Amino acid sequence: MTSSPITDPKALRALSHPFRWKLLQLLIEEGPRTATQCSETLGESVASCSYHLNMLAKYGFVEEVEGPGRQKPWKIVPKRQSISSDGLEGEAAMAAEAAAMAYLDQEFERIRDRLRLREHLPEEWRPAVGTEGTVKFLTAEEAVEYLAELQALLDKYDERRLDATLRPDGSRAVRFFLSSTVAPE
């Protein structure tokens, strides 16, 4: 699945709130949840969860699950999008930067929290938790090729992310976070 960049400044601003990233991640890892269930898991009020879910829905990131009952669960809209200020100007570029920074803040917070909990995991899961850093000396072309290879590896098992019926027994949400930067000249 190819990624399409988010270019609408309002949609980007919707992603600049750190709590919205927590809601998105919860829905990815746990599946459809009501605002009440989100509240219980994330420790925010039901009203706050409902408000933020509605904002995410307004820009097409989540949607309500069809079905009976008054309280409808929310689910992730299955599409791959990216945040970049490339080709954007003014308000849109600033909104893209704010959304990217909110994402990174939330991602680093999650990494720190889960690394702290590593010792409480069952022994068989501990080797799957950690960080890794490396430096490669590459040309621009090699760097792009290298990232494409890593992306192909990250795409493996992607169909299980939004379809719980494809997950094998004993599987758990394992978060991979890939970052690449280039040193200034």
Score class of each variant (00 low, 15 high):
residue 49 C to D: 02
residue 72 K to T: 03
residue 130 G to V: 09
residue 139 T to D: 10
residue 76 I to Q: 07
residue 107 E to D: 08
residue 80 R to W: 11
residue 45 S to E: 05
residue 77 V to S: 01
residue 116 R to F: 05
residue 128 A to H: 08
residue 118 R to E: 08
residue 141 E to D: 15
residue 72 K to H: 11
residue 113 D to Q: 15
residue 110 R to V: 12
residue 118 R to G: 05
residue 79 K to L: 05
residue 93 A to C: 02
residue 101 M to V: 15
residue 120 H to E: 11
residue 95 A to E: 02
residue 84 S to F: 08
residue 104 L to S: 08
residue 114 R to Q: 14
residue 140 A to M: 10
residue 98 A to Y: 02
residue 102 A to E: 02
residue 127 P to S: 04
residue 108 F to S: 11
residue 98 A to R: 00
residue 50 S to R: 13
residue 117 L to G: 07
residue 97 E to R: 11
residue 77 V to L: 05
residue 131 T to C: 14
residue 137 F to Q: 13
residue 100 A to Q: 05
residue 138 L to Q: 06
residue 86 D to M: 13
residue 119 E to R: 10
residue 70 R to E: 15
residue 121 L to I: 00
residue 107 E to H: 04
residue 89 E to I: 14
residue 90 G to I: 05
residue 51 Y to T: 03
residue 129 V to I: 11
residue 119 E to C: 10
residue 111 I to N: 01
residue 128 A to E: 06
residue 71 Q to G: 06
residue 51 Y to Q: 07
residue 72 K to S: 08
residue 44 E to R: 15
residue 140 A to Y: 01
residue 88 L to Y: 05
residue 48 S to Y: 14
residue 59 Y to L: 02
residue 140 A to C: 11
residue 72 K to M: 07
residue 57 A to I: 07
residue 85 S to G: 09
residue 45 S to T: 15
residue 115 L to I: 12
residue 55 M to Y: 06
residue 50 S to H: 13
residue 100 A to W: 05
residue 121 L to M: 03
residue 82 S to M: 12
residue 89 E to D: 10
residue 98 A to T: 00
residue 101 M to S: 12
residue 58 K to I: 00
residue 46 V to S: 10
residue 136 K to A: 15
residue 101 M to Q: 12
residue 101 M to Y: 00
residue 53 L to T: 00
residue 116 R to V: 08
residue 58 K to Q: 08
residue 107 E to F: 12
residue 59 Y to D: 04
residue 113 D to F: 04
residue 44 E to D: 06
residue 90 G to Y: 03
residue 99 A to L: 02
residue 62 V to A: 08
residue 82 S to K: 12
residue 111 I to S: 10
residue 44 E to L: 15
residue 71 Q to C: 09
residue 68 P to T: 13
residue 46 V to R: 15
residue 62 V to G: 04
residue 58 K to M: 03
residue 138 L to W: 03
residue 74 W to Y: 12
residue 74 W to K: 00
residue 52 H to T: 01
residue 129 V to C: 10
residue 68 P to W: 02
residue 63 E to T: 01
residue 84 S to E: 04
residue 89 E to K: 14
residue 65 V to L: 13
residue 119 E to F: 14
residue 94 M to S: 10
residue 48 S to C: 08
residue 128 A to K: 04
residue 124 E to D: 13
residue 103 Y to P: 01
residue 110 R to T: 14
residue 42 L to Q: 09
residue 57 A to Q: 10
residue 72 K to R: 15
residue 95 A to D: 02
residue 90 G to T: 06
residue 137 F to P: 07
residue 55 M to A: 08
residue 41 T to N: 07
residue 133 G to M: 08
residue 56 L to R: 06
residue 79 K to H: 10
residue 109 E to N: 12
residue 63 E to F: 05
residue 59 Y to Q: 03
residue 61 F to I: 10
residue 104 L to V: 12
residue 83 I to K: 01
residue 141 E to L: 11
residue 126 R to F: 02
residue 136 K to S: 11
residue 135 V to K: 09
residue 110 R to W: 07
residue 78 P to N: 13
residue 61 F to N: 06
